[in-house]
């Protein structure tokens, strides 16, 4: 049996979809990008630019598609979805990495106990109305007792027992409790972060101190691998020459700093200490009745005197 013709046709098929290059074409399937690192052939470039560019692009795209079509796929309604590998090219991010949120007290507990988070549906089935209603919010199920026209109460309930008010109070209390817990969690997280930062600086300071506390001030110590050089405080000087504008600004800033109250040692330097304690003198003169009473008294005497005349 002669299979050479079959093999030849098979090879011909593959030749159509494979591209041979001096340097193999680099494919980054994650970013759908292909880089052809072969140098540009000057002859074909000069003969017909457009054709040259198109053939280059075709080779690249063919290689990329060969890679994409050989990726594992998942079926979907729009056709097969190729599962892309993570990209190999490193592109700068547009925003910093998200900060890791500290766990709340409940989340910590749930993690320790292995409790999975269950999402509640926003709607619940209302048996009486035979419809889906909001769990909370507008016409929420949690307000049902407060709005329904009749509520069953126990036989020996107190005279002034209002089931609507009781339900409302309970709901409001839950909201308050939740808010309180939320505050506690954020405060706790804040404290944890602060403590960690504080500890970090503390350790760094101790380390720096200990490195300088040998007889040679750390000169002849063994250096560990990757150990950084100790850095003191670098003095910074302003440039000797500056524009008039900047100089004026700096001088004004200095003046305003001198004038400002925050830098003053004595807050009220104007009033000298008097020998007389005014408050005490008034109390004595008025026989403990206060300044107003004293004023009234003196005014009365004056008018009396006037009357005699």
């Amino acid at each position: 049996m002669d299979v050479s013709s079959i093999l030849a046709s098979h090879n011909a098929k593959y030749q159509l979809v494979t591209v041979e290059k001096e340097t193999p074409i680099e494919v980054d399937a994650g970013f759908l990008t292909v880089t052809d690192a072969n140098s540009i052939d000057e002859d074909t470039f000069n003969s017909n630019i457009e054709e040259h560019l198109q053939s280059l692009a075709r080779d690249g795209v063919q290689t990329l598609l060969a890679k994409l079509f050989s990726l594992p796929t998942l079926p979907s309604s729009d056709g097969p979805l190729a599962q892309l590998p993570p990209p190999t090219t490193q592109l700068p991010r547009s925003k910093p990495l998200p900060k890791i949120k500290p766990l709340t007290k409940w989340e910590q507990f749930a993690k320790a106990k292995g409790i999975q988070k269950k999402r509640k549906d926003k709607k619940v089935w209302d048996e009486e109305g035979q419809e889906w209603v909001n769990r909370w919010g507008k016409d929420g199920k949690n307000k049902q007792v407060e709005v329904q026209w009749a509520t069953e109460i126990k036989l020996h309930a107190a005279e002034d027992h209002d089931p609507r008010k009781a339900a409302r109070d309970a709901r409001k209390a839950r909201v308050v409790k939740n808010e309180k817990q939320r505050f506690a969690n954020t405060a706790w997280a804040q404290r944890a972060v602060e403590a960690r930062e504080q500890r970090k600086t503390e350790i760094q300071r101790t380390l720096a101190q200990s490195r300088l506390s040998t007889a040679s001030m750390g000169n002849f110590d063994k250096k560990l691998e990757g150990e950084k050089k100790l850095r003191g405080i670098k003095r910074k000087f302003e440039p000797t020459e500056r524009s008039v504008e900047q100089e004026a600004k700096a001088s004004l800033a200095l003046l305003s700093r001198m004038e400002s109250d925050s830098k003053k040692m004595r807050k009220n330097p104007t009033s000298e200490k008097s020998v007389l304690n005014v408050r005490k003198a008034v109390r004595f003169a008025s026989k403990g009745e206060g300044g107003v009473a004293l004023g009234r008294k003196t005014a009365g005497e004056k008018s009396k005197k006037g009357g005699k005349k």
């Binding site: 759908l32 052809d36 140098s39 540009i40 052939d41 000057e42 470039f45 560019l53 280059l56 692009a57 690249g60 795209v61 598609l65 994409l68 079509f69 796929t73 998942l74 979907s76 729009d78 056709g79 097969p80 979805l81 190729a82 599962q83 892309l84």
Partner: peptide
């Protein structure tokens, strides 16, 4: 994560003149 293979429609090609 994934791409619909039927949705690949166009290519942007960037190339240089000979070095």
């Amino acid at each position: 994560e994934s791409i619909c293979l039927a949705g690949i429609e166009h290519v942007i090609s960037v190339s240089c003149a000979p070095t």
